[in-house]
Amino acid sequence: MAARIYKPAQNVMQQGKGASADWVLEYLPAKRRVIEPLMGWTSSADTRRQVRINFATKDEAVAFAKKNGIAFRLEEPPATKLRPKSYAWNFKYGRPDRWTH
C-alpha cells in the first residue's frame, strides 16, 4: 500500500494556477489491469486507484500518510522561472528577432 504525494500541473488551457494550489495523495497501483475477454474493457480489482485525496499543504498530506501508516513518495514540483514581459516590447525598434506577422 504505497502512495504518491504531488502537486498537479496547471491546466494548459488556462493561465491561472487556481486548480494547481492543492496537494494530492494518490495510491499507486497494487495489481495490474486485466483485459476483460467478453467486451475487451480493461478492469482491475484494485479499488484504491479510485481514491484521490486533496490537501491544502504538503505538510498536511505527509502528516495524513504518516498517521495512517501509508508508505509514500513525495514529488516536489519543479521550480518555475518567471520572465518579466512587457506588451511594449512587441513594438520595440531593433528587436533581436524578426517581426512574424
Rank of each mutant, 00 (worst) to 15 (best):
A2Q: 15
R4D: 02
I5S: 03
Y6T: 06
P8T: 02
N11G: 09
N11S: 14
Q15L: 11
G16K: 12
G18A: 15
G18K: 15
A19P: 01
A19M: 06
S20R: 04
S20N: 07
S20A: 07
A21L: 05
A21F: 01
D22Q: 14
W23M: 05
L25D: 03
L28F: 01
L28K: 05
A30K: 10
K31F: 08
R32Q: 06
R32M: 10
R33D: 12
P37A: 02
P37C: 03
L38C: 08
M39T: 12
M39W: 00
M39P: 00
G40R: 06
T42E: 13
S43V: 13
R48H: 03
R49T: 12
V51K: 00
V51Y: 00
R52A: 12
A56W: 00
A61N: 12
A61Q: 06
A63I: 02
A63S: 03
A65P: 08
K66I: 09
I70K: 03
A71N: 13
F72H: 03
L74F: 02
E76H: 11
E76G: 11
P77Q: 09
P78Y: 08
A79T: 13
A79M: 05
K81H: 06
K81Q: 09
L82E: 05
L82Y: 10
P84D: 06
P84V: 03
K85E: 11
K85Q: 05
Y87H: 12
Y87Q: 14
A88Q: 04
W89G: 11
N90R: 08
F91T: 07
F91M: 11
K92S: 05
Y93M: 00
R95N: 07
R95L: 06
W99N: 12
